[in-house]
Design a binder for these strands. Structure first.
Length: 881
RNA sequence: GGACGGUUAGCUCAGUUGGGAGAGCACCUGCCUUACAAGCAGGGGGUCGCAGGUUCGAGCCCUGCACCGUCCA
């Protein structure tokens, strides 16, 4: 094995091995008796490359799947991608634009061919990125939202909801994206605070008796005004209700109406009403039968109703109309005003509230069951819990969902209109003729469905629904969904509604919510800032395992994390550490091969200690994963492997391994192989490649670590005595090293070590003499209960023992005195603290007995240590004079 | 305006039923010691945002405030 781990060489090799071995495939022969465990992938958009957020999300899922697979479940990680309507279509259109053509030049059919080509191209890129990340997706089941099967599911849902009256078509104010030229749903609109203006205008009363003053942030919409509204209780305007004003520029006569909805506190208390360009005005207009006048077209350009402003962009129009109205004395005041303006989530364009005919889903009836479930505690469990409130608040206030999009790329709405009688026909199968008049002139609705309509069916449509397939039966409902908090409304909530409605079950038991991966400065990664991190670049530089470990550990669930290259580097160092520990182990295994661990064999203190600690680590890692606490699991593994296995166990093991005692060698090798094997298994879900690479070198049975058994806690490994002994040994070795460092004793120089102790502590020293000699750099060693204090020796005191290092006069005693005085100060403080606590009657009577007992023991230890230090000081100070 | 998250070592962050403040990186010192210099050994560094409260005991629970951030209206 080479000195450093080379990810590139391992990654491709093992991924191919796994892939060919079919380890990722669910429901293979022999898995019938296993319990199923399933996750569906949040399908990435086929728009392009995966970003680091995907890498995080996918890594977490892969950890869960690999872990459960090792625990013996029949695991399914459903693979697939999303057609991503607007996003994909606009990318393809942009590409075409470079060639100087528009989608209209091509026509619908030809354009869609181009999009399918694009899809195939990027799907392959995405698959390759999945491979590189080491993901154990079931590729044999990969789905696409526009597959035939999934499209059937979409139609089935659409038709069923239509027949129940939960899908309807109508003319309402929707959010219009003038750049993408399509309707949007409410949640596709991002509201941003914008510094704008409030324009005050005086509309002249028809009878010439004066003006009524209105205020607006959007003066260009005045062209579409069809009324002025005031609050019915507003005394200022009581006499004016029922009268008319003459709309400036347009000359239209419009009524003054009274409506409860008007806020008398805002502006002058009178508002202009533009029913075709504002949702509130639409409502008010409806109540008062006001006409609806659209003044813009679908691109945000003023139309023929805008009179002289026709042909102007809406923002140009604003500037011009403000000037004109000022000149005319209508617009009398402009105030600075901060208000919230909707922007398209996709195109970034300012969204236009726009009157148009669209399809909607009535959400309230669908939300009912989901709300009931959550309130009764039977709903989907959110991890972390706090996201449940966010979800609940949204479903309780959900509004109807505009699902039609004026795009070509997507599921075409299964509605046909009869040219002869005007009938609307909604069918799963394409109709041949009109069922009402028998006419054959049917035209399908031009629009497609919101992408999220099909994504909302993902957990069951991918498993074959509406057909009753084996997969659906076996793997549905799924166990957990892993996704970001940014799509709780878009996706998670909608999956829950539709699943409850169409399958009668929750789509998943738990939903694990992840935070965002931000840049090192804490900013959101974005294309415009150019601060995004490409996961492929990270893998290229540090390996997939390092990236996975960095992303999945060391942060809090649900919180954002910052991407820092130093942390990836630290993860790579960790991988390398394991690599070298394994090299060490394999070096000693070469000659003899495998050894089976036997607890009957004469195990050393270190052997029993590391097995005990392994036991605890198995428990911590398993329990943490059960809680989805990847950070804790990762930390436990890091500490165990680096601090305990490498820094202590292996150092202790060197004595027997390099020694002459063949039995001791055998025993040590058996423990080392066992602990390494088990550690690699625990680490495998996090770092699949390096663990497989090493595991394949180890003399253990099994085809692949991927399908090896997950470690179990072994009660026979309990060894509290060994833990106590190791504590003393480690404390002693540290004390000696500390002395050596402070006294500047060269690492090469051997010293003499005399330890005074008795009872079990003494036997611990005697049993581990050679390890202590090695790790303390002591070529002469004595331990006993009644050893004489040597002259000219420096001293340290550890729990239950005194340590002497004779120094042959080359060291000044003053240094030792200073060190012991510092030590004494610390101990005095500790003793004082404990005694104060124990003197507190409240503490002794109210604190739990075991806590009080612990304090007493600590107190005894500190006092004992302190007394020893004091005695030594006295002796030394006497000697110094 | 409402809700939520954050504020802990120079930096990035852990800290799970309240019981002696931790990690990684950075920093200082000494080491190419026969797994690993991507390493080893030793070391310095924090009034846990502020103010109250509950408790024998608060980084952790309660109240208020400040600042940063997110979502919703």
């Amino acid at each position: 094995m080479p000195k450093a781990y080379d990810p590139k060489q391992a990654e491709q090799k093992w991924y191919e091995f796994w892939f060919k071995g079919g380890f990722f495939q669910a429901g293979k022969e022999g898995s019938e008796e296993k319990e199923p465990f399933s996750i569906v992938i949040p399908p990435p958009n086929v728009t392009g490359n995966l970003h680091i957020g995907h890498a995080l999300n996918m890594t977490l899922q892969d950890i869960l799947i690999r872990w459960k697979r090792m625990e013996g479940y029949d695991t399914l990680w459903m693979s697939g991608m999303d057609h991503a309507g607007i996003a994909t279509q606009s990318k393809v259109e942009a590409r075409l634009r470079e060639e100087g053509i528009s989608r209209h030049d091509l026509g619908r059919e030809k354009f869609l061919e181009k999009v399918w080509e694009w899809k195939e191209h990027y799907a392959q890129i995405i698959r390759e990125q999945w491979y590189k990340m080491g993901l154990s997706l079931d590729y044999s089941r990969e789905r696409f939202t526009m597959d035939e099967g999934l499209s059937r599911a979409v139609r089935k849902v659409f038709v069923t909801l239509y027949e129940k009256g939960l899908i309807y078509r109508g003319q309402y104010i929707i959010n219009w994206d003038p750049a993408a030229r399509t309707a949007l749903s409410d949640i596709e609109v991002i509201h941003k605070e914008v510094q704008g203006h409030l324009y005050h205008m005086n509309y002249p009363l028809k009878d010439g008796s004066g003006f009524i003053r209105v205020a607006t942030t959007r003066p260009e919409t005045m062209l579409g005004d069809t009324g002025v509204a005031v609050h019915p209780d507003d005394d200022r305007y009581k006499g004016l209700v029922g009268q008319s004003v003459v709309l400036p520029v347009v000359g239209r006569e419009i009524p003054i109406v009274a409506d409860e909805h008007v806020d008398p506190e805002f502006g002058s208390g009178a508002v202009k009403i533009t029913p075709a360009h504002d949702p509130n005005d639409f409502e008010i207009g409806g109540r008062h039968d006001l006409p609806q006048v659209l003044v813009m077209d679908e691109t945000g350009t003023m139309n023929e109703n805008a009179g002289p402003y026709r042909g102007l962009d809406r923002f140009e129009c604003r500037e011009k109309i403000v000037k004109d109205l000022q000149d005319a004395g209508v617009l009398t005041e402009i105030e600075e005003h901060v208000h919230s303006v909707g922007h398209s989530e996709r195109s970034g364009a300012v969204v236009e509230p726009y009157l148009s005919t669209q399809w909607f889903v009535a959400m309230k009836p669908l939300a009912k069951q989901a709300i009931r479930d959550t309130k009764s505690g039977e709903g989907v469990r959110f991890v972390p819990e706090r996201f449940e409130k966010i979800y609940l608040h949204w479903i309780e206030n959900v509004r109807d969902w505009c699902i039609s999009r004026q795009l070509w790329w997507g599921h075409r709405i299964p509605a046909w209109y009869c040219a002869d009688c005007g009938e609307t026909i909604v069918r799963i199968e394409d109709p041949e003729s009109c069922p009402r008049c028998g006419g054959g002139k049917l035209k399908q609705d031009e629009d497609v469905l919101d992408t999220w309509f099909s994504s909302g069916l993902w957990p069951f449509s991918t498993l074959g629904w509406p057909q009753k397939t084996n997969d659906l039966d076996r793997y549905y409902p799924t166990d957990v969904l892993v996704t970001g908090y940014d799509i709780i409304y878009f996706w998670v909530a909608r999956m829950i509604f539709t699943a409850l409605e169409f399958t009668g079950e929750k789509p998943f038991r738990d939903v694990l919510i992840t935070g965002l991966v931000r840049d090192a400065e804490g900013r959101k990664m974005s294309k415009s800032l150019g601060n995004g991190v490409d996961p492929m670049e990270v893998i290229d530089q540090y390996g997939a395992d390092a990236m996975r470990f960095m992303l999945s550990t060391g942060y809090t669930p649900g919180n954002d994390q910052r991407f820092r290259w130093e942390r990836v580097e630290a993860a790579r160092h960790f991988a390398n550490k394991i690599w070298n520990a394994s090299r060490f182990a394999l070096m000693h295994l070469e000659e003899t091969g495998a050894e089976t661990l036997s607890l009957e064999a004469p195990l050393s203190t270190a052997d029993r200690w590391i097995l005990h600690r392994l036991n605890e680590t198995v428990e911590t890692v398993t329990e943490s994963l059960n809680r989805y606490d990847f950070g804790e699991a990762g930390q436990a593994l890091y500490r165990f492997i680096w601090d305990e296995l490498c820094d202590w166990y292996i150092e202790f093991a060197k004595r027997p391994l390099y020694g002459e005692d063949e039995e001791a060698k055998r025993v040590t090798r058996s423990v080392l192989v066992y602990v390494l094997d088990q550690s690699l298994r625990l680490l495998h879900p996090f770092m699949p490649y390096i663990t497989e690479e090493i595991w394949q070198h180890l003399p253990v049975d099994g085809e692949s670590i991927t399908v090896s058994q997950w470690p179990q806690k072994n009660p026979a490994f309990e060894a509290t005595q060994a833990v106590q002994e190791m504590r003393v040994l480690i404390e002693t070795i540290r004390a000696v090293r500390n002395i050596r460092a402070e006294m500047e004793i060269s690492p090469k120089k051997q010293v003499e070590l005399i330890i005074r102790a008795d009872g079990s502590v003494l036997s611990a020293y005697r049993n581990n003499e050679s390890a202590i000699r090695r790790l303390c750099g002591a070529d002469r060693f004595q331990a006993g209960s009644d050893l004489a204090r040597p002259d000219k020796a420096t001293t340290a005191v550890v729990t239950g023992a005194e340590i002497f290092i004779p120094l042959e006069g080359l060291i000044d005693i003053g240094q030792t005195i200073t060190r012991l005085q510092d030590e004494l100060k610390k101990l005095d403080k500790e003793v004082e603290r404990v005694e104060k606590k124990l003197a507190n009657r409240g503490f002794v009577s109210k604190a739990p007995a075991h806590i009080v007992e612990e304090e007493k023991q600590k107190g005894a230890e500190y006092r004992q240590k302190r007394d020893k230090v004091k005695n030594r000081l006295k002796e030394l100070q006497g000697q110094d004079r």
